[in-house]
Every structure is written in structure tokens, then in C-alpha cells.
Design a protein around this nucleic acid. Structure first.
Lengths: 191, 191
DNA sequence: GTGCGATGTATCGGCCCGATACATCGAAGG
DNA sequence: CCTTCGATGTATCGGGCCGATACATCGCAC
């Protein structure tokens, strides 16, 4: 899950760890908190061991022709995706397992949707919809079958959860319709 | 986090693991998937080691013979909360740390709100609101500052996230108002 | 010329998950 | 009668991710 996100970002441009974490926060801020370094660095090591990324020091490239102010010559480690990594990224992005439809997993896939084809997008959107519908039915059951035996706060929590499910299903439905008509999300909206 | 939820359920009545998992799913279905046994049993062991719960067998072999040595029939294990466990439960429920305001942590606290006092409820609701407002501002910033440089899908994800944040803040605001007026949630609603 | 917040790399203990294994039980069905 | 099958039930293992922590540098304000 982190693997996919990291490969996706490194696919756009090489980066060092700190920057990677910031970009990750920006890209996935809607679905999860900023990632921990306790996850980031071990994951980078794993990806490197698998040959999907390479590690290179960001030292000065000698000739002083062009130097952006952003690069210092300290021990920053810049990670770069390999050809195999790019391949694996697209593969992971397209193939959907059960966790692809959970909150975090879906968010990551969705955030990189622009790198997939329409079929894949539709498949994942519909899988997610199914998943949320299941959750919704579970909450509906809990609410209708046992509303009297549940205390007011638990009840209220479930109502709010149910509302969120219904809302997300509608959102997904719109996205699916847009996708089928060949459009891109966000069209016809202004605010 | 699991500790709190388990203590809360065992506070209502003694239970064995399987049942505990089901109840957990029913109580917290709105905020998280069913809990894994790989979390449940180690947590039970931890709580037991801490003296917060006790373990008692509920099955009677009833034959005069001794229990067979190797891998014989395992009785169901019923867990029961201790006096110290009840004390600790109320303590954990009332004291709020940073994770109390994250999704899962907040959900657990909220689900057991009926066992706390109004001051605690208000404190936690307001802390959660603050947390969601921070998330909302982060998304707003990302959307206004860099809307042109983000691809349509990431953008759409952030819009949806922002919408969910705004919605939850409104929900919390209503709950806080209700709480201040001394009411219980869910009043004056019919659907 | 010093403190201080942002940048930057890295590890450690611990929670939690999915996969897996094993065992019992009642009902369905040939 | 017996067998299959799904629900009930306890338990472990490897691994991912987190929060806490440590340590070092940079730029800048005071």
C-alpha cells in the first residue's frame, strides 16, 4: 500500500525521504494522516532490496553550470525508480485485491487513476462501491434490527456512519457515470 | 484502543472471544472493520496479565477422567472484567490523548459516551472538532494553492475529503450544542 | 554568536492485520 | 446412517505501520 504510493511519486520525479513524506501528505491528505518515518524508511529499504528503486547521493555533479538553490550537498539520499519499478507500479495499480477496496487502499489507487486505463478505473470504482454498500447494509441492519437495545450515542455513531456510506455510494455512482461517458471528474462544477 | 473497547464490552457482560469479536463489529461497525483474531487474543492476554480481566472456563467435561494431555478438546474461555478493570476503563474513557481525536480512537470513545459525564463528552467532541478542522484546512490549502498542478483524480479525492470534513464538523457542532443543552443525541429526528 | 524552527536520516518497541491451523457442532441431504 | 458443510470457537505467525526517540545540519532572527 505504501509501496504503491511511493512508487507512484517516484515515478513522477526522484526524491529524498523527507520530501517524499510531504508529497505523500499532500497527495493522500484526504484519506490518511501523514505517513510515519517508521514506515517510510523500512519501505524504501524493501523497495530497494526488490530492485524497484535505487538510492543515489545528491552530491554536486562537478561543473558549476546549473545549480538550483534547493540542492544542498549534505548527506541527503535521493531515491529514483527503476524500469522494473515502473513496470511493477503499473501492475500493482491495475490489479485489485480485497484491500484495494478498503479506505486506504482505494484512496491510493484512486489518487493515481490518471495513470490507468478506463477499464481498470471502472473495475476499481465498482469494487469500492460494492464494498461500501456492504458496510451500509451492515449498518442498516444494526439500526433497524436493534435500535431499541442500543444506547443513544452508539446509535448516533451508526447513523452518521450510514450517512457517510450513502454519500460515498452516490459519489462513486457519479464517478462511474462520468467514467462511462468518457469524461474526467470535476467537469461542470464551479465553486 | 482495542483495550478500551474490550473493557467496555466486558463491562456490560462476560463474554468469550468469538462473541466479543461480533459485539465489537456491531458496536464499531460505523468506524472500523471487524477486528482480527490476531489482535483480539493477544490483547486479551495483555489485559489479563495486567489484571484487568480474568479468564474462566465455561465448559464442564463432567466425566471423571483427567483432561487428555495433547491437543484435546478446548473449552470456551469466558472473559470477565475485574474491579481494577472497571476502574481503568473509566479512567481511559475520560482521559484523552492525541489519538483520542483520530478516527478510530474517537469512535471508540464516542461509542461509550453514555458511561461518561458531560464535561468529558464536551471535551472530546471539541477536541475531535479541532482535529477535523485542521484536516479540513489542510485540504483547503492544497485545493486553493495548487489546484492547477494537481491531476483531476487527486483533485476529486481531495474535494470529496473536504466535503466529508465539513460534514463531520457540522455533525459535531450539533452534538456539542445538544450536549450543552443537556439533551441526548437523536431527539427530534424521525426517518 | 546563539538559540530555534525547519530540514533530514534512521531505529525501536508495540499494536494490529491477514493468513493459517485446528477443533466442535447442528442441520441438510443422499 | 453417515457425510458434507457452514457456523462457532481458540490460537499463532510473519509482517506492515505507527509513535517516540535520537541525532545532525541549515538558515535566520535577535
Amino acid at each position: 500500500m505504501l509501496d504503491l504510493a511511493i512508487l507512484g511519486l517516484l515515478h513522477e520525479s526522484p526524491m529524498h525521504g523527507y520530501e517524499l513524506r510531504k508529497q505523500l501528505g499532500a497527495k493522500l491528505g484526504a484519506i490518511r494522516a501523514a505517513i510515519s518515518y517508521g514506515s517510510l524508511y523500512p519501505t524504501l529499504r524493501r523497495l530497494q532490496a526488490a530492485g524497484l528503486i535505487t538510492e543515489g547521493a545528491a552530491t554536486e555533479p562537478a561543473s558549476g553550470a546549473e545549480v538550483p538553490a534547493l540542492t544542498s550537498r549534505r548527506g541527503r539520499v535521493v531515491y529514483k525508480i527503476t524500469a522494473e519499478g515502473k513496470e511493477r507500479f503499473l501492475e500493482m495499480l491495475a490489479q485489485a485485491g480485497p484491500e484495494t477496496y478498503e479506505d486506504a487502499g482505494f484512496g491510493v489507487h484512486f489518487a493515481f487513476f490518471s495513470r490507468t486505463d478506463q477499464d481498470t478505473r471502472l473495475r476499481i470504482l465498482e469494487g469500492r462501491r460494492r464494498r461500501i454498500e456492504e458496510r451500509r447494509e451492515g449498518l442498516r441492519d444494526a439500526l433497524t434490527r436493534a435500535a431499541e437495545r442500543i444506547d443513544a450515542y452508539t446509535l448516533e455513531l451508526q447513523r452518521h456512519g450510514l450517512d457517510a456510506c450513502e454519500r460515498e455510494v452516490r459519489w462513486l455512482e457519479e464517478l462511474i457515470a462520468t467514467e462511462r461517458s468518457g469524461g474526467q471528474p470535476g467537469q461542470g462544477r464551479e465553486g
